[in-house]
Amino acid sequence: MTAHILFSAHASRWDLYEAPLKEALDAAGVDYVLATQMPPEQVDYIVYAPNSDVQDFTPFTQLKAVLNLWAGVEGVVGNRTLRVPLARMVDEEGLTQGMVEWVTGHVLRHHLGMDAHIVNPDHRWDPVAPPLSHERPVTILGMGALGRACARALRGLGFPVTGWSRSEKRVAHVRCLHGDEGLAQALRGAQIVVLLLPATPQTDSILNASSLNLLAPGAVVINPGRGPLLDDDALLQALDDGHVGHATLDVFRVEPLPQDHPFWAHPKVTVTPHIASETRPPSASRVIAENIRRGEAGLGFLHLVDRDAGY
């Protein structure tokens, strides 16, 4: 059987993905037709980005699965017309490795106090050594594939790492907590907190005035996860009060971040333009091709989204 695959994402993505997808599908032994346009009743799989033109899945009467190009699925998981399996992007080779590198880099940056030496217009000579990693507790909120990978990397550098998730998880040498009571324990006294949760109604503003107050004085907030995880006003107040020493933010409630947003000008905020972990076409294409291969072979799809949980 020939698998009819619709690539439905922003037009600029097709130029990046066409060749890698074809190479990956060929390598997986899939007989396929891949295009950006085809009659909806012929489509078996949609390679999808939630900002694509396809928002009504009703005409796709033969659809077997929607394969998301991104890790985040909040833009599609609630679509009532989508009644087939939805797979999120889990790409350890590309997306996960990119997140590990970004998170590790910024944790080390703040742990070592590098900003004071990189930007030092007054030529201050302040020979104060930072603590060693085992003296710097780090908390990661979100222990999915990305959170677990970052936890292992930071633990390997000697940081005491606490991970929190809504449901119970286990990672060797990492203190893992879950549930409402576990959240307070995970945040209490943390000197660096990394946000890697999905965006759901339950995680909206999970870092707010109350939870920020649990952090150690001068703590650092690092958010490469999702913008709605943070209460922006509460964070700004905590920064102004000095309870939070710095925030490095890669994701925001509105993107691109509006030019008049106070994060841009705040001296204790670093803004990066949603670059913490980009989907890499070659490795992401191999993940997609494997799921199509499995679908055509009658096997279960990988990385399926739990519609009730929202991720």
Rank of each mutant, 00 (worst) to 15 (best):
H110K: 09
C176A: 07
K169N: 02
K169C: 02
E181I: 00
L112R: 15
V100K: 07
R175V: 05
G179C: 03
H111E: 03
W125K: 02
S167L: 10
L108Y: 10
G147P: 05
R136I: 11
K169L: 03
R83K: 15
R124A: 13
R152D: 05
A129W: 13
R155F: 01
H106Y: 15
V84K: 10
P121M: 07
V107K: 04
V119T: 10
V84L: 08
A116E: 08
G94Y: 06
R152F: 06
G163F: 07
V174H: 01
M114F: 14
L154K: 08
G142P: 11
T162V: 14
R188Q: 00
E92N: 13
A87R: 06
C176L: 03
A129E: 12
C176Q: 06
I140Q: 05
G98H: 11
V174Q: 01
S133N: 13
R175M: 04
R109M: 12
N120H: 06
P130E: 04
T104Y: 06
G144Y: 13
H134Y: 12
G163W: 06
H134A: 06
A149S: 08
M89L: 15
H111M: 01
V84Q: 08
G182C: 00
R88F: 09
E168D: 13
N120W: 11
G144D: 12
W102N: 08
R148P: 02
L183Q: 00
R83P: 06
L112P: 00
L187G: 01
R109Q: 15
H123N: 05
H110N: 12
M89S: 09
M143R: 06
Q97A: 15
V138E: 04
C176H: 02
R88V: 07
A149V: 12
D180L: 04
R88T: 07
L95R: 08
G189Y: 07
W164C: 00
R175G: 01
S165H: 14
C176G: 03
A151P: 04
G182I: 00
I118A: 13
G105A: 15
V171W: 04
P127F: 13
G113N: 10
A87L: 15
A153I: 12
V90I: 14
L132C: 06
V128C: 07
L86K: 09
H117I: 04
M143Q: 11
F159C: 04
R170L: 10
R166D: 02
A184K: 00
A151Y: 05
G142N: 14
G179R: 01
R155A: 14
I118S: 09
P130M: 07
